[in-house]
C-alpha cells in the first residue's frame, strides 16, 4: 500500500463509507420511513461511485463549447459534400479553419480539451429517476401501512401481527 495508491483511491473509500452508512440505516431499521431514507442515502452514494469513475484528471464536463461544436458539424458536412462551408459563428472562425484543414480527422481538434466520460452521467440520470420512483412507491406503501396499523414503527407492527 503506497502513498500514491492511497491518494488515488481515497475518493472511492469515502464513497464506500457513505454507501455503507446508507446500507446500515436500511438494515438497522426501526421506523419504516427511516429505512426508505436509508435506501435513498445508499442509492445516492452509488451515484457518486459511478460519477467518480467518469472523472478524468484535468478534464472538463462533456459539453463541447458550442462554437467548436458548430464548426465541427460544418466541417463534417463540408467534407461530406465536397465544398468548404462558411462557419456562421463568428468566434469560431479560427477553430473552423483548423477543423477544415484537418478534413475528416476531427479527433485531432478535440484532443486539446479533455472531456470526462459522459456515459456514467447518463447512467446515473436514469438511476436517479429509478431511485425516486422506488422512493415514491415505498412511501405510498408506508402511508397505506400506517392507515392499516396506525403506526410506522416496525417493531410495533410485528407485535400487532403476532398479537391477533
Amino acid at each position: 500500500m503506497t502513498l500514491e495508491s492511497v491518494a488515488g483511491l481515497y475518493n472511492y473509500w469515502v464513497v464506500i463509507f457513505l454507501m455503507m452508512t446508507g446500507f446500515y440505516i436500511v438494515l438497522a431499521r426501526k421506523n419504516l420511513i427511516k429505512s426508505v431514507i436509508g435506501l435513498n442515502i445508499f442509492q445516492t452514494s452509488v451515484f457518486l461511485l459511478y460519477i467518480t469513475m467518469g472523472k478524468v484528471e484535468g478534464g472538463t464536463a462533456p459539453i463541447v463549447p458550442p462554437a467548436i461544436a458548430a464548426a465541427q458539424a460544418h466541417a463534417a458536412h463540408g467534407s461530406d459534400a465536397g465544398h468548404a462551408a462558411t462557419p456562421h459563428v463568428e468566434g469560431a472562425h479560427e477553430v473552423a479553419h483548423a477543423a477544415l484543414q484537418h478534413g475528416g480527422e476531427l479527433a485531432s481538434t478535440t484532443t486539446e480539451i479533455i472531456y470526462s466520460n459522459p456515459l456514467p452521467s447518463v447512467l446515473m440520470l436514469t438511476a436517479i429517476v429509478v431511485g425516486i420512483a422506488t422512493t415514491a412507491l415505498a412511501l405510498a406503501l408506508v402511508v397505506r401501512i400506517r392507515e392499516d396499523y396506525g403506526t410506522v414503527d416496525e417493531e410495533r407492527i410485528l407485535e400487532l401481527d403476532r398479537g391477533e
Binding site: 488515488g8 472523472k55 478524468v56 484528471e57 466520460n117 459522459p118 456515459l119
Partner: peptide
C-alpha cells in the same frame, strides 16, 4: 486510480462518445 486518463473507462470505446457524437449529432454541444 481516481482521474487516471488511461483507465478502461476513458480509453474505451475508441473513438470516445465525445468524438463520435460530434460527427453523428451535427454539432450538438
Amino acid at each position: 486510480h481516481f482521474g487516471s486518463p488511461d483507465a478502461p473507462v476513458q480509453v474505451y470505446p475508441d473513438p470516445s462518445f465525445v468524438e463520435r457524437s460530434e460527427a453523428d449529432m451535427h454539432g450538438l454541444p
